[in-house]
């Protein structure tokens, strides 16, 4: 038997600092995390500004020159523009395609995560507040959803409703909400046992008020923290679905679809068509995961 060697430091100065400040400070103090935040910021900026900074509108078939197809990175095209990252089979500038693809990928990731978050929070909150049959019903559905691989559910759904940006978003929401619901329920159950909730009951405050003013703000934190990682998950899922050909339509290609398009040329040595979107996707996912993981650890959330 050994003594565990520890003593609680009672440094009051620390206790007074709000958690948010502490987390921001810790993110700034880590070079990896700081790099990831900057990279993520650059990606978002590029996606937002894509129509302004892209050398070409890859969706506008009129501006494409089929003669310029499958050009190597750095070559000059018929119209005089330089294709820094080469062109694809339709003669589309890969740099522009990636910038627009980033837009689609981020849009799908953000919208589907926001949707899943909203549904998950509501479901978890209801389950925790009402318990009993409501809780059992909601949680059985959650267990069912989490019991299947997410890719399978999304594939089956998209195979039956067809492809499209909106449909991919719906599919990802359906796959992801259950995770949020489970986390939200766990956090809300902990809060619900606290005395300030009892005080609210003692004041006869209406249940919706207790849920919105007391339970929600105090239990949503851990759910929001894992959202960053889940956005990465959503983008990956979208890329996978698009790669498999059931995701976004060809008229609005995401990074995943770009990779799929370039895949067939990989063996013929035209690596750039698939490789550059691939690198962009990897960097995007990595930066999201690094930031998300740091957030999760700082707030000490277990998933």
């Amino acid at each position: 038997m050994s003594l565990s060697k520890s003593v609680a430091p009672v440094v009051a100065a620390n206790a007074d600092t709000p958690l948010r400040t502490k987390v921001l400070r810790r993110i700034r103090s880590r070079p990896t995390t700081r790099g990831a935040v900057i990279l993520l910021g650059v990606f978002v900026l590029l996606a937002v500004l894509a129509p302004l900074i892209a050398p070409q509108n890859p969706h506008d078939l009129a501006s494409l020159s089929v003669m310029d197809n499958r050009l190597e990175p750095g070559s000059r095209g018929m119209t005089g523009i330089t294709y820094w990252l080469g062109t694809d089979a339709q003669g589309r500038d890969m740099l522009s395609a990636i910038l627009y693809g980033l837009r689609t990928s981020l849009l799908v990731g953000l919208l589907s995560s926001a949707g899943a978050l909203a549904i998950g929070i509501a479901a978890g909150l209801f389950a925790a507040q009402f318990g009993g049959a409501v809780d059992a019903a909601i949680m059985r559905v959650v267990d069912f959803m989490l019991g299947f691989p997410s890719i399978l559910i999304a594939l089956v759904l998209l195979a039956s409703i067809g492809r499209g940006v909106d449909k991919v978003i719906i599919a990802i929401i359906l796959v992801q909400w259950a995770q949020y619901a489970r986390l939200m329920r766990a956090a809300a159950l902990v809060e619900r046992r606290k005395e300030y909730i009892e005080a609210a009951v003692n004041f006869g405050l209406p249940t919706p008020h207790i849920m919105l003013a007391h339970l929600l703000p105090n239990s949503v934190g851990s759910v929001l923290v894992v959202t960053t990682i889940n956005i990465a998950g959503a983008i990956t899922l979208e890329a996978t679905l698009s790669f498999l050909g059931v995701g976004v339509p060809v008229t609005q290609p995401s990074l995943g679809l770009l990779i799929a398009n370039g895949f067939e040329f990989l063996l013929s040595g035209e690596y750039w068509i698939a490789a550059f979107p691939g690198i962009a996707l990897v960097l995007l996912i990595m930066s999201l995961n690094l930031v998300g993981d740091r957030l999760r650890r700082s707030f000490n959330v277990r998933t």
Binding site: L3, S6, V7
Partner: peptide
Amino acid sequence: SLVQLIDPPG
């Protein structure tokens, strides 16, 4: 402190 069981930051 008497038994030297103080860990950093102490």
